[in-house]
């Protein structure tokens, strides 16, 4: 399975290039949108939440702290949700190619994952530029960010492929998941800090495998704190399990996948 992916590496790379190109080609500002999108998002949330609702981050008084907190968490979440939602629908989108050309189908989610990762790296560069303007330079904890990237990508990819295969047979899955993802987003401390939650709800965060990874981003990019290693055990185990199961599930489903597309 992996050797055939290697054989098709040029196709995968050129597909990723095509996806990125397709996103910005023929827009006047081109790649600048990488910075403008998150900036606008952070600006809106900051104004609404910190100015209108007078929300303040505990432990810090800097006015820039909240937008940075927000941008870090959103970056982590967007990577997760992009890989998940795109893997979930990629088989249906590419149905005609899959039906008519013989090639390793696993290329498709790999292209999705690769595109999201490169997008994410560009976004991180954009965030750095924004942070510098806000007068904030992330500290040493930044070197742990790759752990967060790998685990988020693994969980997103694993779940995405499993749900993507199921979605070919039961098309409601993608619909349900878009709603579930909204809920999931609000059950993750991205817009609000974890400690504002009432005690009786904090178990929800404990069950949420994405929460520690979002926290890792916030720690690395804002607080310059080392993450609690224990909190990463659950996401790591889940990431490994979901990718392994996704591979097995995909293999078993492969012969019938085309039949219903």
């Amino acid at each position: 399975m992996f050797r055939s992916l290697w054989q098709y590496r040029h196709f995968i790379i050129s597909s990723i290039r095509g996806e990125l190109k397709g996103r910005f080609v023929r827009s006047r500002l081109g790649g600048l949108w990488f910075i403008l999108h998150p900036l606008a998002q952070a600006l809106i949330f900051s104004i609404v939440l910190s100015e209108v609702l007078k929300a303040r981050l505990p432990d810090t008084d800097s006015p820039a702290a909240y937008p940075i907190y927000l941008l870090s968490g959103m970056a982590a979440w967007n990577l997760f949700s992009e890989i998940l939602t795109r893997s979930m629908t990629v088989f249906i989108e590419q149905a005609s190619v899959m039906k008519k050309i013989a090639f390793p189908r696993l290329c498709l989610p790999v292209i999705v994952g690769g595109t999201a990762l490169i997008n994410h790296l560009l976004l991180l560069v954009a965030l750095f530029i924004i942070f510098i303007f806000l007068g904030h330079i992330p500290g040493r904890a930044l070197i742990l960010l790759p752990i967060g990237i790998v685990l988020i990508a693994a969980i997103g990819f694993g779940l995405g492929v499993i749900l993507g295969v199921m979605n070919v047979f039961i098309r409601d899955i993608a619909q349900v998941m878009t709603i579930m993802l909204q809920l999931w987003y609000w059950l993750t401390p991205i817009v609000y800090p974890a400690n504002v939650l009432p005690e009786k709800y904090s178990f929800v965060i404990g069950l949420n495998p994405v929460a520690p990874l979002v926290a890792l981003y916030q720690d690395a990019l804002l607080f310059n704190r080392w993450p609690n290693p224990e909190s990463l055990v659950m996401p790591a185990v889940l990431g490994l399990l979901s990718v392994t199961f996704a591979m097995i599930f995909f293999r078993r489903a492969s012969p019938e996948l085309i039949d219903v597309l």
Binding site: H10, S15, K21, V97, I101
Partner: peptide
């Protein structure tokens, strides 16, 4: 089975030949 399958409309003809050629193995 279908002409032009796998082409990316933003790529040039040459780039698409490399791209879709890769898809053909």
């Amino acid at each position: 089975l279908e002409l032009g399958l796998g082409f990316n409309p933003e790529f040039t003809g040459r780039q698409n030949a490399y791209h879709a050629g890769g898809l053909m193995g």
